[in-house]
Design a protein around this nucleic acid. Sequence first.
DNA 1: AACACGGGGGG
DNA 2: CCCCCAGTGTT
Length: 358
Amino acid sequence: MTPLSPPEAAAHRAALLDWYSRHARDLPWRRDPRPWHVWVSEIMCQQTRVSSAIPYFERFIARFPTPAALAAVDIEAVYPYWAGLGYYARARNLHAAARQVAQTHDGEIPSDPEVFGALKGVGRYTRGAVMSIAFGHREPVVDGNVVRVLCRLLAVEADPRSAPVQRGLWASAAALVDGERPGDLNQAVMELGATVCTPKSPTCLLCPLQGACVARATGQPERLPVKPARKAAAQVALVAGLARDDAGALWLARNPDQGLLGGQWRLPGLPADDPQALTALGLTPTAATPLITVHHAFSHQRWTVAVYPARGTPRGGDFVEFRAVPEAALDGLPLGGPALKALRALGLKIKARRGAGR
DNA sequence: AACACGGGGGG
DNA sequence: CCCCCAGTGTT
């Protein structure tokens, strides 16, 4: 693709900044855009709608107001503030990065793009976002919104994931941001993609770039960007045991940090069709039919979990810890989606996604 | 280049 | 039910 030329970019920049100054949303991290706030917001917003991230951001910043505050705690203390947001590696990487900042940068978030970009969990997008928004550097960003806006503006018919289109998109974003108010410019393009140049029904009449947009001229802007076919999610059947200790507390298991639902708690279980498979975890099912069966869809797997009543003390499997948890203490625990769904369906009262110990 | 990695909101 | 979201790290 042919990237935006500097003169084109300058004209678009002016229109975008004017539009943004009138239509920017009031978001919590914009009220006090110190680097830590911007950084946390960018991590939370990865593959996550802004509206979903907002309550998590508020709780997280209240508990961890600085990188040092985050660096000072164990990762287990961080999970409750991330439980329900998904992509838990983000929390682990942010925690690790906060420790890098605390130890090797004296608690100061690096303002050098090269240095900041080397931190855990900081990729090309996050580097550009934090450097431009928090420090005013002319660093580009390309996220899903920018891809959509630029592919329509420039009528890009090729797969946006392909290397040549990626190069063109980043070059165009770099041309756009190479001027005044780089942070506002980057946010303007993203904001436009999120609120006007939307995937299904863009409201082109409200768009500051409508006169220049090639896809709009064709009459079918929603046709772009082209989306590659998606692979079907794998079906996975699991059995899980609902077992209690002598005091009536519920046995839970904690996932290893790596992998799906890393660090999160769940009912002890494993992939299987037969409840007898639970004996591998030290549990004996006490009924032939499940108490309940829950369905849970991830982007790449579809789980069907049959929950059986069981006795015994769980051990082994792929878990890093087992704990008998009184029902009243379930609120404070980072529970994975399937476990939360199952326990609620069984009548246990567990508060909505937390902010534990606030 | 392809895949793993969550969960929810909206068509 | 499917799509998509202020992406990154691994293979």
